[in-house]
Design a protein around this nucleic acid. Sequence first.
DNA 1: TTAAAGTACTTGTATAATGCAAGTGCTTTT
DNA 2: AAAAGCACTTGCATTATACAAGTACTTTAA
Lengths: 136, 136
Amino acid sequence: MKQNSENFRSNCPINFVLEIFGDKWTLLIVRDLMFKSKRSYGEFLQSNEKISTNILADRLQKLEAAGIAIKEIDKQNKSKFIYALTDKGKDFLPIMLEITAWSCKHDATTNTPDSFIEAFEKDKLALSIQILDNLK
Amino acid sequence: MKQNSENFRSNCPINFVLEIFGDKWTLLIVRDLMFKSKRSYGEFLQSNEKISTNILADRLQKLEAAGIAIKEIDKQNKSKFIYALTDKGKDFLPIMLEITAWSCKHDATTNTPDSFIEAFEKDKLALSIQILDNLK
DNA sequence: TTAAAGTACTTGTATAATGCAAGTGCTTTT
DNA sequence: AAAAGCACTTGCATTATACAAGTACTTTAA
């Protein structure tokens, strides 16, 4: 059997995602990058879920190492870093959309606007293109 | 702002999924139920990733509590319990398929048959129906 | 009817991950 | 040159996970 270069527990595709995203925080950073136009450490810190500083630093580093996000110096303010999704990270969009749809269906307290679900059910591709456009 | 009955960190749909599935093991059990025809504690234990007994017991209980899986006495062998996905659990299928597709694209060592990706890209709905049929 | 085997856990303990508060270091603005 | 902003790092307490061993109930076999 071929072996994964990093020593993952198996070569299962579900496991591959768990090795990167299998914790309570990593996906929230992706969410902030993808849907909330957040770019910097300080912005990620302000999210509702209240990630702590050491965990955030650790996860940002891991997202970079996994090729999901990149870190650059902000051109406007050179004391600032900004993060952005790579193509690999942007490819996570369909998963994020399906997750959102599942939660909308199964959690009455989920705060997603009805318009989102309507757009999603009407035309997933159009919604995806629109979201990806916003990231440019 | 309306509050979630269980005190989750926020009312975000991404967070809702993380509160249930945000660890390295829970989703593997769903995978085994959904794709590998596994039903019992002993079968889950044998998966490649080698979950330990206490974690497995804990996660099965949490999956039941979250309404993702149900536990019943096996009709063939009354000393045995079997687990099955609820409708809520089965609704996770689109997420699982997208995760699989993402890993296939971004991990060269992922062991998913090409036939799966072909079927997925050709007709997601047909593939979903086929998988759900197998669960009956 | 009792003993052995199967199944599903539970418990104890060591190690690792996370949460929280405080502190550091570099950059820009005043 | 001092203050403020930003992005972390460090230390320590708490919680989660890993691993090995043990328990309890049920069914099969003698």
